[in-house]
Simulated assay, not measured.
Amino acid sequence: MENQTFSDVLLLEGLNVTSQSFFPTFIFLIIIYIFTVVSNIGLVALIFQERRLHQPMYLLFCNMSINDILGATTIIPRLLSDIFKVSTERYITYIECVIQAFCFHLHIGTSLSVLMAMAFDRYVAICNPLRYATIMTNRMVLILTVLAWGVIFVMVAVLVGLTIPLSRCRWFISHPFCDNASLFKLSCQNVLSNNIYGLCYTVILLGSSIGSTTLTYLKIALVCLTSKSKVLNSRALQTCATHLAAYVIMLVSGATFVVLHRFPQLSDQRKLASMIIMVIPPAVNAIIYGLQIKELRQKIIATFYRNKVALMDF
């Protein structure tokens, strides 16, 4: 540390665990990480290999899987490596910290924007089934994908960009990993503009997400209530329940983390919330979509069955 300065290197609190919970925590995190990466890569591969799964709903879900891999890879490997270090040696360069913070916020924002795109797809499929093929074309899927990633990328770039020029008078990040709020708290300058933009960013993101999703599902519910078709209602319940479960998990986790960041006295609860949002949704999404969507479930079962037969023959 002798040849390093405050501007170059920060001390990251990381994940504080007791000696009794060291191995259980490490094993849990590495299992969750491996499961998240393998399951999401597997789902994306299955969707692209099976031509009959080349439908807007599944192609949009690929964005969710890729984003979940990004989020998990941004945070969990660093947590695992820091567990083996004593708390006074968990150094991270400022540039690495900025990159981690950027990827973290990109992951959270893109999760919500992709879920909004998927809600729109479900709305068209259920409320305008006859026009579904003409509305949800490959071009529309591409536009929704670019918007889901591009808009959040720009908003997060501004969010983190406002923090980078700030001078720093502190070097300790009291958080398991780097995020924008932890970065601008290192400064002794006036961070009013950072707080205002961060609040506007949060309100716009959560407001548009909650508003559009609520409106979408109200319209879907209205169609189901006025329809006498049991097939339509069953299809709507199956596909929407899957999407809604993933959305609620992501929304509750994200909102809890944002709110707790505004209360310094609840730092322990904030750290727990930050871990939940980076561990639970990426792993659960693969289970929800992989097992509850009929076409994917059948493909997964068929793949495992073929592998089992091949091993028995061997």
Rank of each mutant, 00 (worst) to 15 (best):
L218M: 06
Y197H: 10
V37E: 05
F48M: 09
S267M: 06
I293V: 09
H175T: 02
L205P: 01
A133N: 15
C200V: 05
S229N: 12
I173P: 01
S19C: 13
H261T: 10
V44M: 08
F35W: 10
T5E: 13
K299G: 12
V151M: 05
K271E: 05
W171M: 04
V252W: 10
I32Y: 07
F28L: 14
L260V: 12
Q298L: 09
E13Q: 09
F23S: 07
A286Q: 12
F6N: 14
M278T: 13
L272E: 05
I135L: 06
Q55S: 12
I32F: 09
A148G: 05
K299H: 13
R262Q: 14
I126D: 04
V259L: 10
S111N: 05
A117R: 03
V156H: 01
T242F: 06
V259A: 11
N40I: 08
G211Q: 09
F120N: 03
M1H: 07
C169Y: 01
R78P: 10
K271M: 10
G211T: 15
P77R: 02
F263Q: 09
A236N: 11
L272A: 13
I27A: 10
V284S: 06
T226D: 03
I164V: 02
N194G: 03
L166A: 03
T226Y: 00
F6L: 15
V191E: 10
F257C: 07
G150Y: 09
A125V: 15
T216R: 00
M155K: 05
I27P: 04
G254W: 14
Y94G: 04
A236Q: 11
H243A: 09
N128W: 12
A255W: 08
S208F: 13
L251H: 08
S209N: 09
G198K: 00
N195P: 03
I66N: 04
L199Y: 00
T202G: 03
G198H: 00
Y247P: 07
M64W: 07
I95A: 11
L80G: 02
I301V: 14
L215S: 08
R297G: 04
F61H: 04
D313Q: 15
G109A: 10
S167K: 04
T242L: 01
F28V: 03
I300M: 07
T226C: 08
V154Y: 11
R297C: 02
Q238P: 10
L186A: 02
S229I: 05
M136K: 01
L272V: 13
S212T: 11
I108M: 08
R235A: 15
D8A: 13
S65C: 11
